[in-house]
Amino acid sequence: MKTAVAYFRVSTDRQGKSGLGLEAQHQAVHLFAQREGYQVTAEFVEIESGKKNQRPELMAALLQCKKQKATLIIAKLDRLGRNVAFIANLMESRVEFRAVDNPHANPLMVHMLAAFAQHEREQISTRTKEALQAAKRRGVQLGKHGREIESKKNAAAADQFADAMRPIVDELTAEGFITVRGICNELNRRAVDTFRSGGKKWHRTSVHRLLKRFRNAEQ
């Protein structure tokens, strides 16, 4: 029987503790290994935020693969394949890998995924800056406090800011970020300015209010 090492990744500490997402990956990898004739001899779990490129568990998994001449098995290639650190480490290691969601993926395909994702990130970053600058030119004032944002005096400005944010959120949704938490984390990862600005971060409550403005505008 062939030897394999399993690598799982969850994006937050809460997901790691609760098993959210991890259980599904574990089941998918072990069913795949059984079907393909692999014996999983070690498992590595990475808990990281979207902002971090350091992956110590990935490095440990690759080292284990080299020691055992094993194949690295991952549950999903789509998200991992968009991470520059993952691509670099995987390619440099020369370790054979299999992805459950894309079992026929090869190094060329992974490079193409990375190149396309990098291009998309650059385009989104440019459009984000342009949209926010356009909003400022229309009179949207950043740096407001929460009470002021929701006040009648600044309601129009908040609506304009929501209009500027709509195409950005639409692109995130198209990329698979469909939950309030997912959108919030990705906006922070891409350093998109909030209505408050001044280095403030997005929170789930502020994303929820933004989505609510979208819905109200459609009514």
Results as ranks from 00 to 15, higher is better:
A6I: 00
F8V: 02
R9A: 12
D13C: 06
D13W: 09
R14A: 15
G16L: 01
K17W: 10
K17Q: 13
G19C: 05
L20Q: 13
G21P: 15
G21K: 10
E23Y: 13
A24M: 10
Q25D: 08
Q25V: 01
H26A: 02
H26R: 15
A28P: 08
L31T: 08
L31V: 10
F32L: 06
A33E: 00
A33L: 07
Q34V: 02
Q34H: 09
E36S: 07
G37F: 06
E43M: 06
E43Q: 11
F44P: 07
E48L: 12
G50R: 14
G50C: 08
G50S: 10
K51I: 10
N53W: 12
R55F: 00
P56M: 01
A60Q: 13
Q64F: 08
Q64M: 12
C65K: 05
Q68T: 05
K69W: 01
L72N: 03
A75P: 08
A75D: 09
A75W: 10
K76P: 11
L77P: 06
R79L: 11
V84T: 15
A85Y: 09
A85S: 10
I87D: 12
L90N: 07
L90G: 07
M91Q: 05
E92D: 12
E92F: 02
E92T: 09
E96T: 00
A99L: 08
V100A: 08
D101V: 01
N106S: 03
F116S: 04
F116T: 07
A117F: 02
A117G: 00
Q118K: 10
Q118W: 06
H119P: 02
E120T: 01
E122V: 11
I124V: 06
S125I: 02
S125P: 00
T126I: 03
E130A: 15
A131K: 03
L132M: 14
L132C: 12
Q133T: 11
A134E: 14
K136A: 14
R137C: 04
R138T: 15
R138S: 10
V140M: 00
V140N: 02
Q141N: 02
H145I: 04
H145C: 04
H145W: 07
E150T: 14
E150Q: 12
A156R: 11
A158G: 13
D159V: 06
D163H: 13
D163V: 11
A164W: 09
M165I: 05
D170L: 13
L172W: 07
L172T: 06
T173F: 11
A174L: 12
E175S: 10
F177E: 09
T179G: 14
V180D: 04
R181H: 11
R181E: 10
G182L: 03
I183T: 12
E186C: 06
L187D: 07
R189W: 00
R190A: 02
S197T: 00
G199D: 01
K200E: 11
K201P: 06
K201Q: 15
R204A: 08
T205W: 04
S206H: 08
S206Y: 09
S206P: 02
V207H: 07
V207R: 11
V207S: 10
R209G: 01
L210D: 05
R213D: 00
R215T: 03
A217V: 08
Q219Y: 08
